[in-house]
Simulated assay, not measured.
Amino acid sequence: MNSASCAATFPEARPWWRLDLKADYRVSIVVVTYREDCCPDNRKDFEVRFGSSLLDNGNTNPSCAAISSDLVANSVTYSCSDRMGQHVNVLISGFFKVLLLCEVEVYESDFFTQSFLKIAFDSTADLTDPSVKDNVLKKLKSALALRGITNVTLSWSQTPEKAVIQNQHENG
């Protein structure tokens, strides 16, 4: 990212930036994106801290990770080990330092949890027809929404195939 979409502190001792999530969340991952177009010297001695304390502006919360060497990548993923907290702090150690940040992403532990559901369709509809296939997903999403499940993405893990399965009653 270039400087047009980034923030920077003034040169100071131990500059920091904090995100207040407004409530405690179980966070597993924090992704920090730094400037890629300048200042590689300012991409070392970073630390991400996460917790609920505001002591020293939140900079005493437990550390998710510390980067002491120069970063090659401009985006780094830090693991917070499913810790509970409200404040995410990014800080840089030392005197006369500038903190340059372009983006901070915070992911709850549940964000990475996926559920898989296998459904057998008892239908004469041709699920190999793309319009029928998409319509089934729309109907399923609507049925889930009626039950309060709205934060879902539905997709086919395999392309539906035509299968002829005789009803057990026909064989009896």
Rank of each mutant, 00 (worst) to 15 (best):
C64K: 07
A145E: 15
C6K: 00
S155V: 03
N74S: 06
T150V: 13
R14A: 10
D70L: 11
A163W: 05
D129L: 02
V30L: 02
K162G: 09
P15L: 04
S109K: 12
T33L: 09
S131R: 08
L99S: 10
M84A: 11
A65Y: 00
K22N: 09
L140C: 09
L54N: 11
C102H: 10
D134T: 08
T9L: 04
Y25P: 00
D37T: 00
K133T: 00
D126H: 13
N61Y: 07
D56I: 14
C102E: 02
L154G: 12
A7K: 09
G172V: 06
L137K: 15
T153F: 04
P160F: 06
V48R: 00
S52H: 07
C80P: 08
T33G: 05
D126V: 05
A73Y: 11
S3N: 15
C64P: 03
D70E: 11
R35D: 02
G148Y: 06
M1S: 04
F96D: 14
Q158D: 10
D24R: 01
N59R: 13
C64L: 12
M1I: 02
A4R: 06
E36L: 02
S68V: 05
V76D: 06
A163V: 03
D126C: 13
C6Y: 06
Q86V: 14
L21V: 01
T9P: 08
I29S: 01
S69E: 09
T9G: 04
A13P: 02
L137W: 11
E103A: 11
N61S: 11
N57F: 10
K138H: 02
T150A: 12
V152I: 14
A13F: 01
D110V: 07
C39R: 15
D122M: 08
R147A: 15
R26F: 06
Q86D: 13
N42F: 03
W17L: 10
T9D: 04
K133P: 00
P160A: 12
R18T: 14
S123Y: 07
A65T: 02
L54K: 10
Y25D: 00
